Simulated scan of single mutants.
Amino acid sequence: MELTEHTAGNHHQIRGVEPGRVLVSDQWYASSLVVGARYLDSDWPVTSLDELAGPRIDSLVEMQPELVIVGAGQHQQFLPHETQLAFIRHGIGIECMTLGAAARTFNVLMSENRRALAALIIG
């Protein structure tokens, strides 16, 4: 069996998730944010999945990720069908999961040098 060691590169990592806050690199955030490899918007005005529409989708699409991971809450939720279609029309994958699962998935994607964004809804 061949093993490969993954080390932290020059990109953001989500290091912790607690109720009401997320640790990105060495900074805690208590409001919704969007994180990419070298991108961080800590002033993202989305507090629920229903608010992820229109200009907020457009701003994520403009960054041309291959995948957007939406993290919200501690229980599985689903994005509205229209929101999913908006990303699919642009050839961008979209997944919605709990905040903790989104953090873990984002870190794996970063270790694989993928063009991904984590849209983390902290309400």
Rank of each mutant, 00 (worst) to 15 (best):
Q27S: 04
A116I: 03
E2C: 05
R115E: 13
D26M: 04
A37K: 14
V22Y: 06
R114K: 11
I92F: 12
E95F: 04
G9W: 09
G71E: 03
R56E: 05
L3M: 09
L99G: 03
L99Y: 03
R114L: 07
L60I: 01
V35H: 09
R89Q: 13
L40M: 11
N107G: 02
G54F: 14
R104Q: 12
F78N: 04
D50H: 08
G73M: 02
A116L: 08
R56H: 10
D50I: 02
V34H: 10
P65L: 00
G9I: 10
T7E: 14
V34I: 15
A119W: 11
E66M: 04
Q74E: 14
H75L: 04
A118R: 05
L60C: 01
I121E: 12
V24R: 04
S25H: 15
F87E: 02
I121V: 13
E82L: 03
I122A: 00
S59G: 05
L117G: 02
A8E: 12
R104E: 08
V68E: 01
Q13L: 09
D26W: 11
L60T: 01
I69E: 12
W44Y: 09
T4Y: 14
F87W: 06
V17T: 12
T98I: 09
L60F: 07
A53S: 09
V68R: 01
P80N: 04
H11K: 06
S31P: 08
A118H: 13
F106Q: 08
G123E: 14
L67H: 15
N113D: 15
V17H: 06
A72Q: 10
L109H: 10
E2L: 13
S31T: 13
G9Y: 11
G71L: 04
Q84H: 07
I122Y: 04
Q76M: 07
